[in-house]
């Protein structure tokens, strides 16, 4: 640094960059930290779990570390009938989402209720836990909060999964992992815009809808319909199944890739899926040599296709 000017310049550079980072990082973080969770945010983080992208607990993004969401009609502890309740089941070893690990993420009120009444700080990853979303009041205002049903009601993860059964279990959490891995978000956004889009794609999300979700996977570049509320437009499992297997079956002009490989080896009845034969018959159908397209196999319960369908139908 031969010249004094260079010393001054280096200091100025540091000051300018720090100022810029103060304005663009520190100042917005005050706003973002003060955002309280909505019930949607609690539902999302409990459905999707710790993270839907890469983590060391699920390095290949198979969805194996994601929780299950079930609908219960009987109390799993006593066996008594009850009003249907949505429960989020973290089996032993499944990492908890941010809001459970650091309740401050949930925002004032929700944070206090979840700890004091919901006893979420008693949940342990080793044993697993079952959570519910509840509403309560704190200092005179209403907040949603998380209840640790394992502590408050003695519901154990395995008992809850058995009580609900596969038909009442949603794999939306694992489905979001597949959504991230398969790059659906390169074509679809999860963010209806604030300026238009209302009528077609539904209302844009609220500020507090994201606490604890990771990654948010908004998507930047839209080549296809926004999916944030697709389950409200189209709730047909059949349609989704056919559409994922080969989008051109239901929408001849679609540019969406086929995701038939997510079906895996066998279908729901345990029969081996013969992709070569299917494609041959499909080509015949396209050429007009067949009147109907070949049947789309029903995905097996543990298949990635099932996860993805559960995820998409859960977007409401």
């Amino acid at each position: 640094m031969a010249f004094r000017e260079y010393k001054i310049g280096a200091v100025m550079f540091g000051v300018a960059l720090s100022l810029s980072m103060f304005i663009t990082l520190v100042m917005p973080s005050f706003n973002i930290i003060s955002v309280g969770s909505t019930a949607v945010a609690l539902d999302k983080q409990l459905t999707y779990g710790y993270n839907s992208g890469f983590t060391f607990s699920d390095p290949f993004l198979t969805g194996g570390a994601a929780p299950h969401r079930v609908v219960l009609r009987k109390d799993p502890a006593s066996g008594a009938d009850m009003e249907p309740v949505t429960a989020y089941v973290f089996s032993a070893g499944m990492p908890f989402p941010s809001g459970i690990l650091h309740p401050a993420v949930l925002g004032e009120g929700t944070d206090d209720l979840s700890v004091e009444q919901g006893r979420i700080n008693e949940a342990s990853v080793e044993q697993g836990a079952v959570f519910l979303v509840q509403h309560g009041s704190y200092n005179g205002a209403e907040y949603p909060y998380i209840e640790n049903a394992t502590a408050t009601r003695g519901w154990l993860p395995d008992a809850v999964l058995t009580a609900a059964g596969d038909a009442n279990t949603s794999y939306a959490g694992a489905g979001k992992v597949i959504f991230v891995r398969e790059g659906c978000w390169w074509c679809h956004t999860l963010l209806p815009e604030q300026t238009q889009d209302f009528q077609y794609f539904g209302a844009p999300p609220y500020l507090g809808d994201f606490n604890g979700e990771s990654p948010t996977a908004f998507g930047s570049d839209r080549k296809a319909p926004d999916l944030l509320r697709v389950g409200a437009r189209n709730s047909s499992k059949e349609w989704m199944m056919m559409h994922f297997f080969n989008p051109r079956l239901v929408q001849p002009h679609s540019i969406m890739p086929r995701f038939d490989y997510l079906w895996g080896e066998t279908d729901a009845n345990g029969n081996k899926i013969d992709y070569t034969a299917w494609r041959k018959e499909y080509l015949e159908y396209r050429r007009g040599e067949r009147i109907t397209p070949p049947e789309v196999p029903v995905p097996a319960p543990g298949s990635e296709a099932r996860y993805l369908i559960d995820f998409v139908l859960n977007l409401k």
Binding site: T24, Y50, N51, S98, L207, N211, S214
Partner: peptide
Amino acid sequence: MLMIVLLVGNLPEYFHLTGLTEAYLTWW
């Protein structure tokens, strides 16, 4: 500046920051 950006921009992955913080830092 590139080094600072890569350090700060990936904080959500290093420290599991979530929600809008993650979304904003991704684009930052």
